[in-house]
Design a protein around this nucleic acid. Structure first.
Lengths: 233, 233
DNA sequence: GAATACCGGAGGACATGCCTCCGGTTCGGT
DNA sequence: ACCGAACCGGAGGCATGTCCTCCGGTATTC
């Protein structure tokens, strides 16, 4: 994970096809949008592995149309996640400028989890190198320096325990999002409870625990969650 | 998750085929053992979804032999995990009798993670209802009362924060094991670091953080872990 | 050494995903 | 209104992977 760029990445248009090629025919462009919307939705809820056939079906379009427009799944992914990734980086940078170091740090974790919890695809693009390529890789790397600042400031302030490092952050996010992933049908916000627990553990010192947001799942909910096989990895 | 049984489950023989049926021929029994050993190993490292063909290959035996001996994957799973599940329950019960409530609670979490980290199959059997059946279900249910005692004692002692409940435990385990799962190639013990963080968050009060075991992954390790696609769910 | 319990693995049935191809349709300029 | 180019849909070929059965041949037991 070498730092290559810290600034914004790519163009951010998100709508046009290719600046210097002649525009698509109207129906083609329409279908292209439908495909992107469908992919966006499916990636968000089922992850990046969904089949292109599924995307086509959801878009109400033939498979051919998908393949014609996007040479590969990667192309589709890059097209879709560039903006989200940039927003995430912006979050981190904003948090790094927050007046209070700890608030910035904790706030970013929370914000990042919100984004990730709502979009499994984004989670996979950000937390794994296995998907997306060039532009996504740049995005991932742009995140790093901002997170380092967050950790450094919170630690310097004496509020974050000093044995935590920036590279713990992706792991911590992974833990919280694991909860977000498997409990999303029962309580899509449940992860907040466990994030708070972690944050209390990350504090340099504290007397009393911060009250936990959300209730724990009840027996039936746990039972239901356990029965759909998402609870382990 | 209704409590049905708290005592030991099943017979625990683990070796014989079926008490009242005439014993298998020598070669048959030998092969049966080979299959169980192979399944044990593969379940542990790749989870319960491995194909029976793979198990047969690993056992150095034909597929037919596997199917002949075990009517279904479930049968194989039950046969294999009954003992492990019982051991886990014994851990919990022992911890519930520990002189110190907090030590018992924290010790059980740690012990359970050790077992789970070493055996992905056990993790899936214990933390999901989707696999195994009768006997495994009983095992899962046997765990519950012991965990309730653990939580109650640690809380009564004033060391565990009082807004944590027994049903948080499977979720907490899931979080820690998520780390164990994706970091196993880089540092099979990494989960201890994050378990400690969580435990510090679970304490009712504390001034200073408990020192963290293990180092965080370094950049290259994170990079490698991220590239094998196990980092999200 | 015969009867029988057992073995191996080829192979059929099925599912899933990728991607191509081409007859038919729609668009857009004239 | 019309025609050629651009585009569409989805059937279908290919590859992969899993489950499970079947039966000619082999090992074991008495």
């Amino acid at each position: 994970m070498t730092v290559i760029s810290t600034g914004p990445v790519g163009t951010g248009s998100g709508t046009c096809h290719d600046p210097d090629r002649r525009p698509l025919r109207r129906d083609a462009e329409r279908n292209r949008q439908k495909v992107m919307a469908a992919a966006q939705a499916l990636f968000a809820e089922r992850g990046l592995e969904v089949s292109l056939d599924d995307i086509a079906r959801r878009a109400g379009v033939g498979v051919g149309t998908v393949y014609r427009r996007f040479p590969s799944r990667e192309a589709l992914i890059e097209e879709l996640f560039e903006d989200s990734l940039r927003e995430l980086i912006a979050d981190a940078q904003a948090a790094a400028r927050a007046p209070d170091g700890w608030t910035g740090f904790a706030g970013f974790l929370s914000r990042a989890c919100e984004r990730f919890a709502a979009d499994r695809g984004l989670r996979e693009v950000s937390l794994s190198t296995a998907h997306g390529s060039d532009r996504c890789a740049l995005g991932r790397q742009g995140l790093k320096p901002a997170v380092e600042v967050l950790v450094a400031r919170a630690a310097a302030q004496g509020r974050l325990r000093d044995d935590v490092v920036a590279l713990d952050v992706p792991v911590l996010l992974g833990m919280v999002l694991h909860v977000a992933g498997f409990a999303r049908d029962e309580d899509p916000q449940l992860w907040r409870r466990y994030l708070q627990l972690l944050l209390d553990g990350l504090r340099a010192q504290r007397r009393r625990p911060t009250p936990l947001p959300r209730e724990a799942l009840d027996e039936d909910a746990v039972e239901r969650v356990m029965s759909c096989g998402r609870s382990c990895g």
